[in-house]
Simulated scan of single mutants.
Amino acid sequence: MTISRALALIATVVLASGAWSQGMPIPKPSPGLMPNPTLGKALFEKNCASCHGERLDGSDKGPPLVHRIYEPSHHGDIAFQLAAKNGTRAHHWQFGDMPPVPGVTPDDVAHITAYVRMHQRRAGIR
């Protein structure tokens, strides 16, 4: 296991345990789901692009997702699940808190995350 994968695993465990200890349900995609970036693109455009930018480069409403802050070792996939379900406090940027995204399922978020990760890898973010 590489150091970055080990750190990502630790970050995921820490985030999950923090959510669990606060009584937050941890959203989980369907068992056996194969996240698909192509499906994620359409879901991103519908649910995320108005704040995070059509090209994931941010807007005046939300931060860019193709940025080292959102690399898997710092914001694991579970962070995307928790943010979509529960919203999140502003903690890296000055855009204000992110509200929950109604109507987006854990499967949808898994597809969106696959789309974001694909673009991050293309930009050299691993």
Rank of each mutant, 00 (worst) to 15 (best):
R55H: 13
A84T: 10
G58P: 06
G87N: 05
A123L: 05
P100W: 12
H52P: 00
L65K: 01
H75W: 13
T105F: 02
I26W: 07
T2N: 15
S4H: 12
R68T: 11
H111L: 04
L39I: 09
F44V: 00
N36H: 08
S4P: 11
A90D: 11
G103T: 04
N36A: 04
L82G: 03
A114M: 05
H91P: 00
I69W: 13
K61D: 05
P27T: 04
L15T: 07
S21L: 14
N47A: 13
P31M: 09
I78T: 09
M1A: 12
Y70M: 10
Y115A: 03
W20E: 05
I78Y: 01
R5T: 14
P63H: 10
L7A: 12
T113Y: 06
L7F: 14
A19G: 07
D108V: 00
R89E: 13
S30E: 10
C51R: 07
V109S: 00
T2M: 02
G124Q: 09
T105H: 02
N47W: 13
G96T: 05
I3Q: 14
N36K: 07
H67D: 15
P35Q: 06
G58K: 09
G96M: 06
A49K: 07
R121Q: 15
R89W: 07
Q22Y: 14
V109T: 14
L65R: 01
L43T: 01
G18A: 11
P35H: 06
K46C: 04
